[in-house]
Design a protein around this nucleic acid. Structure first.
Lengths: 136, 136
DNA sequence: ATAAAGCTGAGTTTTTCAGTAGGATATGTC
DNA sequence: GACATATCCTACTGAAAAACTCAGCTTTAT
């Protein structure tokens, strides 16, 4: 019953690109250092995000990744569906008679996630960072 | 991102007790056979359900379990919280800056689960069973 | 006495998760 | 052209969690 690190790190990654990336590309190494994540692991996550059109890559020296869409047009739902799969609470082939309940749960989650854009996540993160500034 | 078998089987177990148990206790063996589950595994799940007051046990021959509350007073939320833990989507000690999002998601799930009673689940199951009767 | 049940903790198998490893390819700078 | 810095890609692995299984005890109706 947990969101995996794929989904969470994916959001952290995109939020980092939104916060620190301007017109020039941001290398994963920088993201990994700022967010305290493994660069190699981020490489696995960015692939699907690139294929889904959230970011575009610039290869070679001074390369990296740039957001390919306005922040308002990237929702938490899209990102999590890309990285976590369908967010279904039970496998499709399970037949326990409660599919209606699992569907209702999934719908309620998707509704929440639909209403949260990358912009909102940046705000959320910044409020959080400000609140915990004194720990540094 | 999946509800575990604990939660699902727990609901199946209670629904079975509601459907097949009257005033006399239902042994787990019968539940296990009807629902196609492992009796031994159900024994592990029923412990917490008994401790939480959803069922009472009758030991010895011709014993088993009986619902200890009216169906309307047992919600899917209570059952899943008992068997699955707090239904939080990320561990409490995780500090990714998105706690607000995870909390909103959890709240939306709990709201749905709060509105579903054992009675509703029995209906759901019976509609399901009727719809798939011809497979037997 | 016996058989059918509940009760309990430990052990085992299977699967998933989270990350590593190791390279190949691309590109800006010197 | 050499080099450093990147992306890109596939496979592997260690650890942890999930999903049972096992063994043995206690309780109680017949």
């Amino acid at each position: 019953m947990k969101i995996s690190t794929k989904g969470r790190y994916g959001l952290m990654l995109l939020v980092d690109l939104a916060m620190y990336g301007g017109s020039s590309p941001v290398p994963l190494k920088a993201v990994a250092e700022r967010q305290g994540l493994s660069e190699h692991y981020l490489e696995q996550l960015i692939g699907p995000l690139r294929n889904a059109g959230f970011v575009r890559s610039v290869r070679g020296a001074y390369g990296g990744y740039i957001l390919a869409k306005p922040r308002r047009e990237i929702t938490a739902k899209d990102v999590l569906l890309t990285l976590e799969g369908p967010l279904s609470l039970v496998d499709e082939d399970v037949d326990d008679g409660f599919q209606e309940l699992w569907d209702r749960l999934r719908d309620s989650m998707l509704t929440v996630l639909e209403g949260v854009t990358l912009d909102d996540l940046v705000d959320m993160k910044q409020r959080h960072d400000n609140a915990y500034m004194y720990y540094i």
